[in-house]
């Protein structure tokens, strides 16, 4: 077995130091060491997008990230999206309202990727939404409702 290492980064605004191994991916650290099971996994090979988290605001696949790559970074997971227990992020509200969630397994990855999109482009076209979310597979919804939700959230966030 390889030696253990300590990595430090911020998760959802909280500074964390984790004793881990160089070959444990961020996905494993989040889910298994930090108990943040909101981040999902569907392939562990970079092929489905379920494990997407934001690293310094940019969507990345936690199943591919090695601990050293996230040293000192700011990580946002789905647990960090809502302002408080009652106050959801506008994207979360929109996903709830338009029914963009069926089984919900792709949802954390979709939400975070959509957040990064709206942060950069507050009024994306349907095509831009599709492109931005094209690394996230959803088997339930056919994506239509997700597009509607992102559009709705974008409209609300603009005002």
């Amino acid at each position: 077995m390889s030696d253990s290492i300590v990595v430090g980064f911020t998760v959802n605004g909280r500074r964390r130091e984790v004793l881990t191994k160089p070959h444990h991916t961020l996905l494993e650290i989040l889910r298994e060491d930090l108990g943040l099971t909101g981040t999902k996994h569907g392939c562990e090979l970079g092929e489905c997008g379920a494990c997407t988290v934001l690293v310094d605001g940019i969507p990345q696949l936690s199943c591919l990230l090695l601990p050293h790559q996230v040293e000192g970074k700011e990580i946002t997971t789905v647990e960090g999206l809502a302002k408080s227990g009652d106050e959801l992020h506008p994207l979360q509200e929109a996903f709830v309202e338009v029914g963009a969630v069926q089984c919900g397994y792709c949802t954390p990855g979709m939400l975070l990727t959509a957040k990064a999109l709206l942060d950069e482009n507050p009024a994306p076209s349907r095509q831009e939404i599709a492109e931005a979310l094209s690394g996230n597979i959803c088997r339930c919804t056919g994506y239509e409702s997700i597009t509607r939700a992102v559009e709705l959230a974008a409209r609300r966030m603009e005002v």
Binding site: L36, T37, G38, T39, T77, V78, E79, L81, A82, L88, Q92, F95, V96, G99, V101, G104, T107, P108, L111
Partner: peptide, 10 residues
């Protein structure tokens, strides 16, 4: 659905 968008569904 709220549990699903906040990541709290187990």
């Amino acid at each position: 659905v709220r549990a699903k968008v906040t990541g709290s569904t187990l």
